[in-house]
Amino acid sequence: MANHSATHPKHVHHHFVDSNQQFESAKLGMWVFLVNEILFFGGLFCAYIVFRAWYPELFTQAALELNTFWGAVNTVVLIGSSLTVAMAIRSAQNNQKRGLEINLLITILLACVFLVIKYFEYEHKLHLGIAPGSFWNPTPEIAAVLDHPKANIFFGIYYMMTAVHGLHVIIGIVLMVWLYLRARKGHFNSEYYTPVEITGLYWHLVDLIWIFLFPLLYLIE
């Protein structure tokens, strides 16, 4: 029902008293959603911990197949994108339309770089027959190094963790593109930048998850 009164700002929905209540609600809602996300990934981390506690030697061996260098590069890429998102929010708060657009663009670019690197990592592994579960069919050289009956399970966990995380990156890119289009139309300013703020929260969480995935998967010596 279009029950907007003339002085209710356009971006404020009818059931909120004022802009601030709407902003605070959106942020709280996003945080509650992030709790979901943490528990969602938590299940995967739990599987990881259980299997690592059972077969520590498997994890040491298998991690050697993961390329630490590219993992580290991806970490840097994601941290950089987190920084640009934070800068984007700052730009919106300061009414800097241009800054907002540029920061969003860089974020999208970095997220794409992350996915491209991830893609090449996957391709390399699948090429060597390092696939999850019953598709586990390593080349003889790999099989010689990675001689463990449960090796397929490590990579089952690895693929699930990184794929679910990658899916979140893709969703993040879609959201950023949407934000960018809206930013170009001048929808955001210091009075109203709620979507930028809460998408930023989401993106930082994606970064947070990777901050833990990186040492747990790549850095086991």
């Binding site: 945080w31 509650v32 992030l34 709790v35 943490i38 528990l39 938590g42 299940g43 981390f45 739990c46 911990i49």
Partner: peptide
């Protein structure tokens, strides 16, 4: 609190 709570419940599960 929400963030800390989420971590606490994750630790609980594990």
């Amino acid at each position: 609190m929400l963030l800390i709570g989420a971590l606490a419940f994750f630790i609980l599960m594990v």
